[in-house]
Design a protein around this nucleic acid. Sequence first.
DNA 1: ATTGCCTATGCAACTCGTTGCATAGCAGGA
DNA 2: TCCTGCTATGCAACGAGTTGCATAGGCAAT
Lengths: 188, 188
Amino acid sequence: MALEHAILVSLLEQPGSGYELARRFDRSIGRFWTATHQQIYRVLRRMEADGWVAAQEVAQDGRPDKKVYSASEAGRDALSDWLREPVEPETVRHELAVKIRAAAFDDPAALVSEVERHRESHAALLARYLHGEQRDFPDLGALDTRQELQHVVLRGGIEFERMTLAWLDDVLATLRRLAADRPDGSTT
Amino acid sequence: MALEHAILVSLLEQPGSGYELARRFDRSIGRFWTATHQQIYRVLRRMEADGWVAAQEVAQDGRPDKKVYSASEAGRDALSDWLREPVEPETVRHELAVKIRAAAFDDPAALVSEVERHRESHAALLARYLHGEQRDFPDLGALDTRQELQHVVLRGGIEFERMTLAWLDDVLATLRRLAADRPDGSTT
DNA sequence: ATTGCCTATGCAACTCGTTGCATAGCAGGA
DNA sequence: TCCTGCTATGCAACGAGTTGCATAGGCAAT
């Protein structure tokens, strides 16, 4: 239900076409709200019909025309209303946790490489966050409101990745200990 | 795609009816995989058709009959196969992060009470986790494989809540600082 | 007595999100 | 030249997930 609002935020930060939005959702915004180009195009059309965004056709040479959207006053108001509504509890989907509990009925060692893969991707993401922090916020003493808020979200991402890495190490140690206790992989 | 597998894990831990599963998903399992009774009933029927679970009608006095499901060998095999497949990257939906960035185009102070509400619910969840840890794992030196794996998942939940609490405090401090800088709530 | 809640299962309709495919021009490399 | 890939938008079909409602008996409280 909040894809509209994520799009509004992105358009307020910077107007853009559906295609450009889709790429932003693959990068920055997508760290905390994912969406495919299909969803974005569909929602943009609905938002245009509702008057939340305004579109302007832009001809380009060497590539197809694009429709550049920007948030309207009505969109701004809708975002403001949403901001003041209590958030519904987020639905959790933690597949790895299910797998870890499932490993009790299989061989715990079978999960090790999977967890290691997760560990690597989280380590890579943390590195990208830290690099992005250096690049986008070189002077932490001179941030405006928007940057302060972007930075506090980024700090959340960084702390989340650090916590996750520590936990995955804990998981790996546990799996290896269990595998050493039962090297046959018996499922009793 | 993993609801089937979460149900299999739950049924392997303890056979039960659709209704009982729905309640487990409201409690323990639901901490990392949510599902409504509608979803569960539908998926259980499909799983029964696929031979992943077997059902047994159980008459009860004073209440309606129930169908008690348990995981079959085929279900166990399916779970085992799934365990060995790489997990697809989880889609992230962090509504509060969107709201925080949205606050840059509104009044940051308007978010304070919302963030405080989140803080309270996370603090309550952490307390429940810690209480459940005391109750279910009184002797950490004497855990079997299943309990070891349940406990490492629980540790993840505990660390996640601790990290989240610290971050929400950071968010609150940031919002209050910004509100103090611009007490009029101007949106420029 | 009536009201409301709990167990237990289910249908129907809907929205949300994903996947595969199509179009269409341009650029760059084998 | 053909193939691949990028920009840019979109349709159609499907699957996942939500919401509202229905049934139906028993229980406890008012």
